[in-house]
């Protein structure tokens, strides 16, 4: 290592920096699929309509081939006693909250993946196993996932869950917006079964218009807020409610896309690999100069 002249040094450096530059162009192409289609689909959840029958929970499990008790057991309302979250065994759950407008009719709220327009799980995933599809779904690719659970850390709604009890091939489980069903023209299972059509499936832009209309024509029934219109930069699933969303266990992630800061830092540090190569060059320069000085001594 001590024995090496200037020509060697420059030659090797040049070859290697070219190699890195080549690497960097590949890298920027390897973005995850992130098409934000104009007519991406969404679901408008009108929590003032939901009756908490939990048929959606049952239909979801059947559609995703998860083990489930018979449908009749879902009418058991004691399940509402504690706040439940989507889990590896149930990709969607309904929670019940008291309704300030009418104590006899509690507010029921279905929760599942919000299918963000700028999903932090997609941005975070180390291998790009998460993707935002053209129809709005955020889906997970079992062939890529390494099970690092960074998506769970990143998700502002704390939705993805992990099969902690599986030693082999544990999966990240989350609502996939029934990607396999919508692909063949079917409705998402929960939307199809809902007896009161709490869930309206349609193009997101149209749903926002419908939601605005509903608020305008029933100002007593709804608070003037479409949750998901701007939250976390917008989500495919939108919610209407009769009370503040914080009271029905919705987090406030702010209106900016979650991956914004981290991605700009990430791309700032890398910026087509210029800063690292530059830094490399500086270090090389220092190394060479100090070596020269040493030799001069």
């Amino acid at each position: 290592m001590q024995k090496q002249n200037r020509r060697d040094f420059l030659k090797t450096s040049a070859i290697l920096s070219t190699a890195i530059a080549g690497l960097s162009t590949n890298k920027t192409k390897a973005k995850p699929k992130e098409i934000l289609s104009e007519d991406r689909m969404g679901v408008l959840v009108d929590t003032t309509v939901c009756i908490g029958c939990r048929n959606c929970e049952w239909a979801c499990k059947v559609a995703h081939e998860l083990p489930t008790k018979p449908k009749e057991s879902y009418s058991d309302r004691t399940a509402f006693k504690k706040l439940r979250r989507p889990s590896e065994g149930a990709l969607t759950v309904v929670n019940e909250f008291s309704n300030p407008q009418n104590l006899n009719i509690p507010t029921d709220v279905k929760v599942q993946c919000m299918h963000c327009d700028h999903p932090s799980c997609v941005s975070a995933c180390i291998v790009g196993a998460m993707s935002k599809e053209e129809n709005g779904s955020v889906i997970w690719d079992t062939d890529k996932c390494i099970g690092c659970r960074y998506c769970m850390v990143a998700c502002p709604f704390q939705v993805p869950s992990f099969q902690y009890d599986k030693a082999l091939n544990p999966k990240i489980m989350k609502c996939d917006f029934c990607f396999e069903r919508t692909k063949i023209g079917k409705l998402p299972a929960c939307v199809e079964i809902c007896p009161v059509e709490t869930l309206t499936y349609g193009p997101r832009s149209e749903l926002i218009k419908i939601a605005r209309d509903k608020i305008k024509h029933n100002p007593d029934r709804y608070i003037d807020h479409i949750y998901g219109e701007n939250e976390a930069g917008g989500t495919s699933w939108l919610y209407l409610a009769n009370q503040d969303f914080a009271k029905i266990a919705f987090p406030n992630p702010g209106d900016k896309p979650m991956p914004g800061t981290s991605e700009s830092i990430q791309h700032g540090i890398f910026a087509y690999f210029v800063p690292p190569v530059f830094f490399y060059a500086i270090l090389g320069g220092i190394m060479w100069i100090t070596k020269k000085r040493k030799e001069a001594e």
Partner: peptide
Amino acid sequence: DISKPDLEAAYHQ
């Protein structure tokens, strides 16, 4: 037309 509920939902609602 998704601006109004379907028949099943209309009845139930």
